[in-house]
């Protein structure tokens, strides 16, 4: 399957492309929003600042193209790290500085509480919210499997039904979100070795 990986100047694209190849997909790096309608699934990676990420998507015309493909044509979508955060209604950047997000998952993106060391860097446990395998993305992932995280902000969904997984760091935070065919993961499946490949394969299967 052709999977579009959006390149918008927000970090490590190559690893996502390589991991998708290993999982049996045909990844296409998409620089041009006009080409987004040529793929069967879309991955939005990215690291860094929320405001910069949204501005970079907007400048390149990706916001309308994503809305049309993902919301309009129901193309399966996976946001990774910043790509998950951009799904939210709005994101914080510094005290009381907010930027609008894509708004596909209702909720805010805010800084992790300072009761633990921030950034949250390293391998931590992921507990799928739906343990019956109802959520296609996290299907077969044993509760407590370790994935790689590196982030300072996290999504706080308004609706508990949007939680696809949680991770304990101080209080548990939302480490994956779901809304029908739209998913986001705070961890890096492309850097989580076999556990990560399982999640990516689940996504590809769900997209078929």
């Amino acid at each position: 399957m052709n999977v579009g990986v959006i390149r918008y100047g927000a970090g490590n694209i190559d690893s996502v492309v390589r991991a998708l190849e290993v999982c049996g997909a045909t990844p296409l790096v998409i620089d041009d929003a006009a080409l987004l309608d040529t793929v069967g699934a879309i991955v939005l990676p990215g690291v860094g600042a929320f405001g910069h990420g949204m501005a970079a998507l907007r400048e390149r015309g990706f916001i309308e193209a994503l809305q049309s493909e993902v919301l309009g044509n129901e193309i399966p979508f996976l946001g990774i790290c910043l790509g998950m955060q951009l799904l939210a209604t709005r994101g914080e950047e510094g005290p009381e500085r907010w930027h609008d997000g894509l708004g596909w998952i209702e909720g805010d993106v805010s800084r992790l509480p300072a009761d633990e060391r921030v950034p949250h860097v390293g391998w931590n446990e992921v507990y799928p919210a739906d343990t019956d395998g109802g959520d296609a993305l996290m299907r077969g992932i044993d509760p407590g499997r370790d994935f790689y995280f590196v982030h300072s902000y996290r999504v706080v969904p308004d609706d508990a039904a949007a939680w696809a997984a949680s991770t304990p760091y101080g209080a548990p935070f939302c480490s994956a979100v779901v809304r029908e065919h739209i998913w986001g993961v705070q961890f890096h499946p492309e850097k989580s070795q076999s556990a990560g490949f399982e999640v990516l394969k689940n996504f590809l299967e769900a997209a078929c």
């Binding site: 927000a10 970090g11 690291v47 860094g48 910043l82 950034p119 860097v121 982030h151 300072s152």
Partner: peptide, 8 residues
């Protein structure tokens, strides 16, 4: 850090 985030 401004451009790519403190985490990197």
């Amino acid at each position: 850090a401004d451009r790519f985030g403190a985490q990197c």
